[in-house]
Design a protein around this nucleic acid. Structure first.
Lengths: 187, 187
DNA sequence: CGTCGTGCTTGACACTGACAAGTGTAACGC
DNA sequence: GCGTTACACTTGTCAGTGTCAAGCACGACG
């Protein structure tokens, strides 16, 4: 019987994660089968299931990486050195989704992920925190407010619609900027 | 060889569509297998593929129905008899997605649909038209403007995030209303 | 009475995720 | 040295899936 929590020190899990990312990028979410990942990584067909428990476990690990990268993207200071403003933040969010559409799609597909995974939960919380921090006037942490949630929903909506061709990819920045202008208009 | 376009007069296709909707509602998108649908409809395992070409064809037919229902929901006049305003429209859109989350999810999953299907394309266009008509000051048809697209993206974002538990279902109406207030604030 | 097409079924294949059991190997006690 | 044990996988197998070719019943038509 495989151990409940195999150590991550060796190269199997990282190698499988790399292979899964490559499959995801090349063939989309449907192409990420345990066996295809195993073939690409040059291991036996059951190795991924051993290393990650099951398919949901593998996808969860991939999605966790995605959330970490998204949070890092948002935390990055702007060229000016100052924290990014709302429009810049939205553009980055959408750009991330457009750069890795299959990964972004996977991140928001809880039916295929292990929702109770601790790493996933914390990475998800970290990315929401990065967004919250930048949409509060004081730049501090705290529970997301209405403006944060509306901004998130808008960015997610633009990213999702663009990812599936419902919106032209060239229109996304204008929509994000238009929304930011709405928000900053004094009521 | 099955004919390219089997007639829709008999009961096979409607029966399979009903079965597919039931599978979708009960077990989510992953539960809609051609064989499960066939079992539920009481036909042979290959009948769905015969009737719809392949799995994508069946899902496309289901999604097409979904777009038709969504458009009908939005076109419905409000209790007052007047066309729905932006907030009401958004609430209806999100409510539709929450009433049939698996169907809504399927409708925005082009990787599993036959994107070039004429019925799907026209149903999709009709639902966008219903939304456009109600977000233009003159209530006329025409290409969707920036406000329409931003509103759509917001509604889609709220619906998607709520469907997967990222937002509490109880918060969606407040977000939609908050957005509508932003839009109606004179700049 | 044949024969022909239509509408669906039967049968098969390759592929998938999951599981049980096997295999090699390194570490450890003696 | 040797036996035992734990680990890190691999091998083998099973049920389920989508797809395709072939078969079959049956009514229409000559």
């Amino acid at each position: 019987m495989p151990p409940a929590d195999p150590p991550d020190t060796d190269g199997l899990r990282p190698a499988l994660l790399r292979a899964a990312r490559a499959e995801l990028a090349e063939g989309g979410r449907a192409a990420v089968s345990l066996r295809a990942v195993a073939r690409r990584a040059g291991v036996s067909h059951a190795a991924p299931a051993y290393a990650f428990g099951d398919r949901a476990g593998l996808l969860t690990a991939v999605a966790t990486h995605g959330y970490r990268e998204l949070a890092a993207t948002m935390d990055e200071p702007a060229a000016s050195g100052e924290p990014a403003d709302l429009a810049e933040l939205g553009r980055r969010y959408v750009a991330f989704a457009q750069r890795e559409p299959a990964l972004y799609e996977l991140m928001f597909r809880p039916a295929e992920l292990a929702g109770d995974d601790a790493d996933l939960t914390s990475a998800r919380a970290a990315s929401l925190r990065a967004l919250t921090r930048r949409t509060r006037p004081d730049g501090a942490d705290g529970p997301p407010g209405e403006v944060t949630l509306i901004s998130w929903a808008l960015a997610h909506g633009v990213a999702s619609l663009a990812a599936q061709g419902a919106l032209p990819a060239s229109a996304t920045d204008a929509l994000v900027d238009g929304f930011a202008a709405l928000v900053s208009t004094p009521s």
